[in-house]
């Protein structure tokens, strides 16, 4: 056990963690941030995706000590402090991009990073960016629709 300090959704946290504690288990079990999901614990499904200093990572594979001093953003940190959804969150609601919703937090984190990086991504770029995120319900099309809407590339229906 040793102490680690990092920022989660703008809040500084310091906690003791051992070598087996992943960022995912710390977020879910220690910090109560259960919006980040464990789908496979082997980096295949992307349900546990969070942003570390703006970069999407599988939090299930990352030892929590690896984020010491970093800025971690989770799904709970996407909406504004007054509760307004981010554009990509709102686009998921409007475009039927959510079915069961278990993969949704991971998709939203990956796409938040994509849009920050590439403000108007084309469809192939979107689908490529989503290579590490599995969705079993939607067949992906409405998720692509949401990105196009959130980036102003389609008329809002």
């Amino acid at each position: 056990m040793s102490a680690v300090t990092f920022t989660v959704n703008g809040r500084i946290v310091t906690l003791d963690a051992d070598g087996a504690d992943t960022l995912l288990t710390v977020l879910r079990d220690r910090l109560g941030l259960t919006g980040t999901k464990e789908g496979c614990a082997e980096g295949e499904c992307g349900a546990c995706t969070v942003l570390v200093d703006g970069v999407p990572v599988d939090s299930c594979l990352l030892n929590v000590h690896a984020v010491a001093g970093s800025d971690v953003l989770t799904i709970e940190g996407l909406a504004t402090s007054d509760g307004r959804l981010s554009p990509i969150q709102q686009a998921f609601v409007d475009n039927f991009s959510v079915q069961c919703g278990f993969c949704t937090p991971g998709f939203l984190m990956t796409l938040t990073a994509l849009i920050a990086d590439t403000p108007t991504p084309d469809e192939v770029t979107i689908r490529s960016a989503l290579s590490g995120n599995l969705c079993r319900c939607t067949g992906y099309s409405t998720i692509v629709d949401a990105v196009m809407a959130a980036t102003g590339q389609t008329e809002r229906s």
């Binding site: 959804l85 609601v93 949704t104």
Partner: peptide, 15 residues
């Protein structure tokens, strides 16, 4: 649109 989409995109829905 579905009402449960909002808690799901916020990570608030309890699975």
């Amino acid at each position: 649109v579905r009402q449960d989409a909002d808690p799901k995109v916020r990570g608030q829905a309890v699975f």
